[in-house]
């Protein structure tokens, strides 16, 4: 089972690659089909943002653990222009590219957690997580996963 994937988003077809990698990892992790598609769609939105607004960036996917749950962590990082008003970027219908304006808020709703760290002129780092099923008591997450504190 892949526990880490790094997809540089430089060309448009990399978005589809990131989407596929996320779908595979989420399904392998034991997320329900619908939730795996949520993750894949959110990754698609984030990767599209990297390509459209930041001139490229990186998508990192990794399996993480918190107490007795495994989850998938998505990090979208770029050295683009940054987001001047994060709250505004997260509001529905706000768009700078003639889109629907639901990419970022949509991704936030599809994932369990999302944090945006952005500095104008420096870049943006978005971290999002989706948690999978609770593991049985006798199956502690193995130490190979990065453990995330609450």
């Amino acid at each position: 089972m892949p526990i880490f994937a790094h997809v540089p988003i430089m060309q448009e077809f990399h978005i589809a690659e990131a989407r596929r990698a996320a779908l595979l990892m989420a399904l392998d992790l034991g997320l329900k089909r619908t939730e795996a598609y949520y993750v894949a769609t959110a990754v698609s939105e984030l990767a599209t943002n990297l390509f459209l607004h930041a001139g490229g960036g990186d998508i990192q996917l990794s399996v993480v653990a918190r107490s007795n749950r495994l989850g998938i962590e998505v990090i979208a990082q770029d050295e683009g222009p940054g987001i001047a008003d994060v709250a505004l970027a997260l509001s529905d219908g706000f768009t700078t590219s003639n889109g629907l304006g639901c990419g970022l808020p949509g991704a936030q709703r599809l994932m369990d957690e999302m944090e945006i760290d952005s500095e104008v002129g420096r870049g943006t780092r978005i971290l999002a997580r989706k948690w999978g099923p609770v593991l049985p008591q006798d199956r502690e997450p193995t130490s190979s996963y990065q453990v995330v504190e609450n």
Binding site: T34, Y37, Y38, D92, L100, C102, A107, R109, L110
Partner: peptide, 15 residues
């Protein structure tokens, strides 16, 4: 696909 319908509605308005 049902997952697509779920995702689209979850993301925001019925797209």
């Amino acid at each position: 696909h049902p997952s697509v319908a779920l995702t689209l509605v979850e993301m925001g308005r019925g797209l």
